[in-house]
């Protein structure tokens, strides 16, 4: 009996650790975004709250917490409140299966990748319900756009994941990483390069970030699905977006860049010299690289039009992934080294 409680307590502690660090990451990612995009745009970004503006996310969070949640008069009150919860829930729950370094995973389940796919698919409900419940035309358009976009990019994303599953022969994320060990050229980004590219672009589209942010489309539909939200309800959408960005970056790291594996594996001198660095450091560095790409895209590209995004997804990415899956099957069958031999 007591043992059960202890186990449960230990799991709860782990959950709290993951969620708190995740929310902090999301908050500071917003600061990093403002700083990095700021420097790309010839300005300094926030630098007033705390040293170098480091307290800015805290100040923003407090401000949003204390602001009133304005309920539009003819909104569906129940759904209006449920929507942000539905958005943030899956974004956090998905982290249960992410391995940060060997043995550091909340739930080491065998269908980890499947679980992740289903969780990321769920997040679209938050957006659709938010758009519907707001009873606003702009929000409604945004919700429709993002529903169509996320559903179609889910397919391209799913097919790239299929490639990884074929290559690794498992759905368990820790095993997928283990299958990539042996140095930087053993990682799956190389044999699965087209899938890697498709996955990454789909991931950007999936999280509704520029250049695919038509569901928010600042200059077209103002803020899209969350135009009517304020206060902490808006903050939940905001956190969900950033948590999702981190999630897809973590996934890209795990599936294509060897997760916690050191990039110097197999290099005689460096490997031993740097072996003291824990895997989580490599993991975080790789995730940061992908997160940086998000910000870089945002500062560089104009926004796609809604139908152009659809065309890109259906007519280019899905055929491309299908073809590469066949190529991959052949490669696995004849045992192309060093990955499949």
């Amino acid at each position: 009996m007591l043992e059960n409680f202890l186990t449960l307590g230990w799991i709860m502690i782990k959950v709290v650790i993951i969620i708190v660090s995740l929310l902090l990451t999301a908050a500071y990612l917003s600061l990093a975004e403002r700083k990095i995009v700021g420097f790309m745009q010839d300005r300094v970004g926030p630098n007033r709250v705390g040293p170098l503006g480091l307290m800015q996310p805290i100040a923003d969070g407090l401000k949003l917490l204390f602001k009133e949640i304005i309920m539009p008069s003819r909104a569906n009150q129940y759904l209006f409140i449920v929507a942000p919860i539905l958005a943030i829930g899956p974004a956090l729950a998905a982290w249960a299966v992410i391995p940060f370094q060997p043995e550091w995973v909340l739930a080491d389940i065998n269908v980890g990748l499947l679980y992740l796919l289903s969780m990321t698919s769920l997040s679209v409900y938050g957006i659709i319900i938010a758009g519907w419940a707001s009873n606003s035309k702009y929000a409604f358009l945004g919700a429709l756009r993002s529903a169509a976009q996320m559903v179609s990019y889910e397919i391209a994303m799913g097919f790239s994941v299929v490639g990884v599953v074929m290559a690794a022969g498992t759905l368990n994320l820790s095993d997928i990483i283990a299958a990539q060990s042996g140095g930087i050229h053993h990682w799956y980004w190389l044999p699965l390069l087209p899938l890697f590219v498709v996955y990454w672009i789909s991931a950007v589209a999936e999280t509704n970030r520029l250049p695919f942010d038509v569901s928010e489309g600042e200059s077209e539909i103002v803020a899209g699905f969350h135009v009517e939200y304020s206060g902490i309800a808006f903050a939940l959408f905001f956190l969900a977006e950033y948590a999702n960005m981190t999630l897809v970056s973590a996934l890209a790291t795990i599936m294509f860049l060897g997760g916690w594996l050191s990039p110097f594996q197999g290099i005689p001198f460096l490997d031993q010299y740097l072996s003291w660095i824990p895997g989580i450091v490599w993991f975080m560095l790789k995730v940061s690289f992908f997160l940086f790409l998000f910000l870089w895209f945002r500062a560089t590209f104009p926004r796609y039009r809604y139908d152009q995004i659809m065309r890109l997804g259906w007519k280019i990415f899905i055929p491309l992934t299908l073809i590469w899956i066949v190529v991959l099957a052949v490669m696995i069958k004849i045992g192309v080294g060093p990955w499949f031999s």
Binding site: V37, M40, Q41, R43, L210, S219, A299, T300, F301, P302
Partner: peptide
């Protein structure tokens, strides 16, 4: 059209 950086340049 979404190219935010141009604005500041």
């Amino acid at each position: 059209i979404g190219a935010m950086t141009m604005f500041l340049y």
